[in-house]
Design a protein around this nucleic acid. Structure first.
Lengths: 241, 241
DNA sequence: CGTACCGTTGAGCAGGCTCAACCGCTGTGG
DNA sequence: CCACAGCGGTTGAGCCTGCTCAACGGTACG
């Protein structure tokens, strides 16, 4: 399980949003909000600590709240008519969720690890945004960033080979930069969640991992951690499609 | 290039944005902008008429402009390291494109049919949005809408069967409601663009179409038009996954 | 120690990809 | 006017890989 940092100042400074800036600037992912804006949002947010597996809301229910992740990992998914489930996104610290369509949530949301969330009344946030264009602009940047991420996800899923999808996924997790550990990537979600996100069967993910391990491209110290052994081949595999 | 068509009122009223409203309201796709806002945006936009196949911009180039589609169809794509190409979105009237990441376009954009576009200086638009929260809010809604569409695209691509993907794609085109013709759906793009978007080979798309036709679920009067014959089975096929 | 859950491994099948030939339309040049 | 090339699309044969079904393994927890 993901360690929940007991002494976490993040939860007190108010929410933050991670994204690449829209305008000129670095290509890096940065925290968008100014201290003033964080305090402002923090003032209207309630803080929630929720255990792993808890369902935050279900698709189709009335969208009363908007959420910002302070820490932890969540999954956003849709249940398909067949009863199958598709994970459309994983959410990490400084991610935003709960933006609705015509007043209803479009995805279901569930915690994977224990999470800390900021929760803001939808109407309150909307009113605030309508009065504070600078703040609203930050949300615009964040949404643009999410759109890119979703498009990248589509590109991953449209690959044919399981190992290639898995490699791109690991690279995504790595770039998400829980830079706590330089040499090893943390995989907070289960194999079946991973399979679901990648549009593969659980068995294919398992086989792809073994295959990557056998060819000595990566090593799995344990099931929630991976270390890249052969960076060159790793990158080539992620790129070649 | 800059000629505005007297015969086309769309091009004179100023740009518009299609999306489902974020807040309470209908679940239908509506035109977001108020007449005042359309005029305002129209005042800072130049009008372009571009022929089919024209490349508007290439991925990676400096993002100087933001565009809104007045009419026509375009494709947004990325070139992958292998030289293959993935279409990440088709764009129709009242769609927005050119939002950048750190000042560079992330996709390439090309016209499929002849198009009419509104083109606005990026910096000008940003300044305007920062001063007009109501207008900015409309862009926020539009982006949320695009994010949903991208997630739906991912769900389509993650299906296994070609016929199912094709059916969902046709349903998408239908809902896009060129409601000009109730009984038949227009398919503006080529088979190979379709294949590209669906993550299938050109041959698979072709076979899927023939298969749908043979089972008398749809009929293809010509290559750019399809009529749903058996609505029930059509919807079942689109839903079953 | 048994149960449950998640993950691994194996056998066989199915559907999509590749390669290749062919068709029909369009535009071009003689 | 015809011959030709080129492009987009169709069809067929065979391969490849991921899915399904099923059994087994390992770890946490009562």
């Amino acid at each position: 399980m993901l360690a929940s940092t007991p002494a976490n100042p993040v939860f007190d400074d108010g929410p933050s949003l991670r994204a690449v800036q829209c305008g000129p600037g670095t290509v890096d992912v940065v925290r968008l909000l100014a201290p003033r804006q964080r305090v402002q949002l923090g003032a209207m947010a309630s803080r929630l600590r929720l255990p792993a597996r808890m369902v935050i809301y279900r698709e189709g229910s009335i969208a009363q709240w908007v959420f910002i992740v302070a820490s932890g990992v969540l999954k956003a998914f849709r249940d398909l008519p067949s009863g199958k489930r598709r994970i459309v996104a994983f959410l990490f610290a400084d991610d935003l969720f709960g933006l609705s369509e015509s007043h209803h949530y479009v995805n279901s949301l569930q915690a994977i690890t224990p999470v800390k969330l900021y929760r803001i009344q939808r109407a309150t946030l909307m009113d605030t945004l309508r009065r504070d264009p600078e703040l609203e602009f930050q949300f615009l940047c964040k949404l643009t960033h999410e759109l890119r991420k979703s498009q990248r996800h589509t590109v991953i899923v449209s690959r044919r080979d399981a190992a290639g999808r898995m490699t791109m996924f690991l690279r995504m997790l790595e770039q998400h930069g829980h830079q706590s550990c330089a040499s090893s990537i943390e995989i907070p979600m289960s194999r079946s969640d991973t399979a679901n996100y990648l549009g593969l069967s659980l068995e294919s993910v398992s086989r792809a991992c073994r295959s990557l391990e056998r060819s000595e491209i990566v090593a799995f110290p344990d099931r929630h951690r991976v270390r890249v052994i052969d960076r060159l081949r790793f990158e080539r595999l992620a790129a070649r499609m």
